[in-house]
């Protein structure tokens, strides 16, 4: 097992009075793909959104415990959330490009970081689009609106936009759930490529997808981490009965 990038210690999260995550302890290895699976409402997306403090936006959320990234607690008082989010990119379930050109979508992150030199921006945009495997499809229309792209292309554009900020970790919240099988295939290939350079955490509904793309799998159920281990092991010889029942499709 590679080095651990993210560790949570007794992470518990409440929405108001309702407990959504119950004492989660999980180590997530660097430069590998970790998949979170589980039925709807099990807390896997909530957990993902803790990792870049996206839950801060919801006033009723209360979090206890620790999340250590590179050994530092991201919920400690002094942390700069804005810098944290530069280090941890996120790709959402629904592709969400800005109503700007393809170029400006990818340049958004670098621009807010103060890169305004057009030559530098052009290089970043080209590199990010290439790394997100969408360059060939859009290179002739970089200045057209991103909203004219297909759903699958939009999602890869969103990945390119995330890559442009040069994060270390990429969180993916069901990135292919709204896409057709061909686009999904492309995203999965892309994830496979990206894990050479990035730590990837992916939430998915689709168990085949988890089995295909991930190195480690965590099964969540009712806000608890039921089982966590090598993907091959989880899908062939799970230790817990609940995991087995979910994987074999008996519930969820």
């Amino acid at each position: 097992m590679k080095e651990t990038k993210i560790v949570t210690r007794d992470l518990t999260l409440h929405y108001g009075q309702k407990m959504a995550l119950n004492t989660i302890n999980i180590p997530i290895p660097e430069k590998e793909v970790t998949a979170f699976i589980g039925p709807s409402g099990c807390g896997k997306s909530t957990f993902l959104r803790c990792l870049n403090r996206m839950n801060d936006l919801i006033p009723s959320v209360k979090i206890t415990g620790e999340i250590l990234i590179d050994g530092l607690d991201i919920y400690r008082k002094k942390i700069d959330v804005v810098n944290l989010r530069k280090k941890i990119g996120m790709v959402f379930q629904k592709s969400n490009p800005f109503a700007k050109s393809i170029f400006e979508n990818v340049a958004y992150g670098p621009r807010i970081n103060g890169v305004n030199n057009l030559k530098a921006l052009t290089e970043i945009v080209e590199r990010s689009l290439k790394n997100a495997a969408i360059w060939d499809e859009v290179k002739d229309r970089l200045h057209d609106s991103a909203l004219g792209l297909s759903g699958g292309q939009q999602q890869r554009l969103c990945i390119a936009r995330t890559l442009a900020v040069e994060p270390e970790i990429i969180l993916m919240d069901e990135p292919a759930s709204a896409l057709d099988p061909i686009s999904t295939g492309k995203i999965e290939e892309l994830i496979f490529e990206l894990k050479k350079d990035y730590t990837i955490v992916i939430v998915t509904h689709n168990m085949q997808q988890a089995a295909r793309v991930s190195d480690h799998t965590a099964f969540f159920y009712l806000g608890e981490l039921v089982e966590y281990g090598k993907t091959r092991k989880i899908f062939t010889t799970p230790e817990k009965k609940q995991t087995e029942e979910y994987i074999t499709g008996r519930f969820g």
């Binding site: 996120m90 969400n96 800005f98 992150g109 970081n113």
Partner: peptide, 17 residues
Amino acid sequence: PRELREASLALGATKWQ
């Protein structure tokens, strides 16, 4: 849409940006 705000924040933009 909230998704667009989240996209911006997730890229490390401040609230004002």
